[in-house]
Amino acid sequence: MIAIAVSSLVLGVLCGRYLFSPEVVDFFAAAEPWALYALMFSVGISVGANRLIFHKLKEYHVKILVIPLGIVLGSLAGGAAGSLLTGLGMRENLAVAMGMGWYSLSGVLLTGLGGASLGSTAFLANLMREIFSFMVIPLVARWFNEYTCIAPAGATSEDTTLPMMVKYTGEEVVVMSVLNGVICSLLVPVWINLLYAV
């Protein structure tokens, strides 16, 4: 997925820079929200169809919320700390950090809410979060506990980084990883919209 994401981005930049006329650029700008709606609908179908998620949700009860809670608090703290190092405002830092690794959605949402530049920062930051997660999960498994392997991955723990969980944790943590990804994925648009609603 990372290969598809990076090649789509590079190809898009090159086409926008050297190939496409302003009319074609406008066409893609108009198509963006529709592609997002289609993606959200499609992700919704996948979540709704996964009965195992509902079953395990009952079994773990509220304890399952401990991991997404930690990820939300940690991402907010990281975003707040980031405001000391970036030229962005507090709200922008928090909104980018609350992408929690879901680069496509946070990039598009923040392009709409805060402009193309902030959307691009959100895209890059969250893409980097996903890439760095692949690198740090083996270290987290060694230095912390198995549950903590889910933390760097954030919202990506249900799909792209899931193979890392399979390799470095047990079956139970893998299921928790899927649940965490679903919960964080639901929270990403809620948090980003909330930060721009206040």
Binding site: C15, G16, E32, A116
Partner: peptide, 15 residues
């Protein structure tokens, strides 16, 4: 959809 979204974002960035 993800590839299209990212491509479209790249187009608007590159322009």
């Amino acid at each position: 959809c993800t590839a299209l979204l990212i491509f479209a974002m790249g187009v608007s960035l590159g322009s």
